[in-house]
Design a protein around this nucleic acid. Sequence first.
DNA 1: ACATATCCATGAATAAAATTCATAATTTCT
DNA 2: AGAAATTATGAATTTTATTCATGGATATGT
Lengths: 349, 349
Amino acid sequence: MNKIHNFYVTMTSLSLLELRHLRTLAALDETGSVSRAAKRVHLTQSALSHQIKVLQNHYGLPIVRRQGQSIELTEAGKHLVALARRVLEEIQATERNLAKMSEHASGSLRIVLECHTCFDWLMPLMDAFRQNWPEVELDLVSGFHSDPIQLLEEGGADVVIGSEQVERRGIVHHPLFRFEILAVLAPEHSLRAKKILHAHDFAGETLITYPVPEERIDLIRTVLKAAGVQPERRTAELTVAILQLVASRRGVAALPSWGLKNYVEHDYVIARRIGSQGLWSDLYASTLAETATRPYLRDFLATARNTCFATLEGIIPLEPVEQQAPERQQGGETVMEKKRGRSIKRMNG
Amino acid sequence: MNKIHNFYVTMTSLSLLELRHLRTLAALDETGSVSRAAKRVHLTQSALSHQIKVLQNHYGLPIVRRQGQSIELTEAGKHLVALARRVLEEIQATERNLAKMSEHASGSLRIVLECHTCFDWLMPLMDAFRQNWPEVELDLVSGFHSDPIQLLEEGGADVVIGSEQVERRGIVHHPLFRFEILAVLAPEHSLRAKKILHAHDFAGETLITYPVPEERIDLIRTVLKAAGVQPERRTAELTVAILQLVASRRGVAALPSWGLKNYVEHDYVIARRIGSQGLWSDLYASTLAETATRPYLRDFLATARNTCFATLEGIIPLEPVEQQAPERQQGGETVMEKKRGRSIKRMNG
DNA sequence: ACATATCCATGAATAAAATTCATAATTTCT
DNA sequence: AGAAATTATGAATTTTATTCATGGATATGT
């Protein structure tokens, strides 16, 4: 029936464009480089290069232009990026709606912050979240907690934002990003000539930190302890207060690179790399496995990543690393095995 | 460097949604059936079934509900369809912009209509086109032409909309859709009792047609000629005029199903299938190979298909059939080989 | 200036996934 | 009840995206 004729006819392939491309375009725009964008979307640089090529062939237009060490979007590229922005936003919005339909969109999201500086990006994020999930009780759990993960288990909190990543049954760690911790000095400080500071440079200095135990301070834990350097400490609650103390030469500090830009540009303080590789820290959001399935939590994480990558400079995405699958039956946590998309894979042996 | 830790961490797969899914959703909504939607997007029913399943699993929500012989979109499905509509429209708009950037968006689009009834859907389409491509000279080539394809070759027209599909060098045929031609009778006509009309039923009747030669009238060419039936003919220029003549019992007609619905519902006329399989006709837009590459032509075809499928009832998509690849060098027409997307393939041997 | 990172492009190999095929299950219509 | 039409599903297959392995090109630093 319906016999099919036996010869070709053109069928102009209407749009080979896929959301994947739009996500790539957005990342390209945000990072200004193919390889950085690749990290951002968890693919290789090669994959993105191929994607770009396909698009350029399809539209018969250049989309990016190689500009020395990085790239620049062409006119056409900008059009596509604008499209990507709008479309991806619309998608997020309706996915939020679907999530709200799928279960009760209520619950609590009580956040423990191990990293004080994270206030900077968390505040606006929380404001946005409140709008999208009015039914969710959103809170910051204040005060110091020696074992914040335990708080999760006890039900006293729902998310811990910190850099530890202890393997602990029933707990999942959602990678956020990696950032560099820089040493902050007064512009006239005697160490100003050095491009890179090493452990011994801190000997005899006063270290200004947030009021948390030493083990929570990366500089001390991973750099100074090992070198046997033990500077004096002085604490302040707020980032601005720390910076003010540094500027007025009461001591030096070590802070995430992203919050420093403005102050450095105005010569309020200067920032220096710590160690030749730099001192880096990874940030995770940890939750109970159960909590991880909640749609509002997933939305929270998604927008956290989005806004951080869009807002914070100099941070890099973390590879989602795979947990040594808990061999035999470990309970009902098939959650992650099921829910995760295709793109979790080892990227180096 | 950057040693990678050795265990898993959840990475909530952010949206496995792709445009493919949105295109499917839109088709599902328009056709109300998985198999019809499949034809619409040139995939198998199975493929769509799988797609739907994936989406439902992903969102944890039913998207379609089986409703007897066809399907119904759920609340969630409707959300997604609404998204699809907006997104696909935005994409078409920016692709139009890109097309305009890639070459001069000017030229001419002079249309020859072999099928008179096509006026019905062509008019609004032309209006829309004029808005999007103000630089393109849009015209209907009037009058009768015995060999319209020749008009293309002579440069007197740019597109022929008709049902012939003669293989001719340098000419490409873009499939539009397949539609059924129904016999139209006055409600009191003596043949009203028959569900299906056959060739001999037309003997002794007056056939009311557009004023075109017999070879252009499918009913005569493919049904009556073969049976040696030769009814009287009477012609009218406009579809409404034909219908009026039929209603006033001056004769019978054969018209595309889509334009009849309103008249049939109001009992102005009645419509009957012709032959047990029905009488079907395929519609193609034919152009020079060269014209086929113009972005405005491709846009015209795309929106033609879109609006037709959205507007006209009872039409079905045509499989893009592959031309018996012109073995050895047949000139420069690599155009279609290059430009067409992946999805041209034989779907039944 | 020369070695050394970085960065992007590209072809081939590989891995992933979407689609088809074959068939079962379900519903409707006669 | 049987036939026809429609959707669902598991397995096979094809198609496609992605990685891998390089090469060339552009800075970067000593």
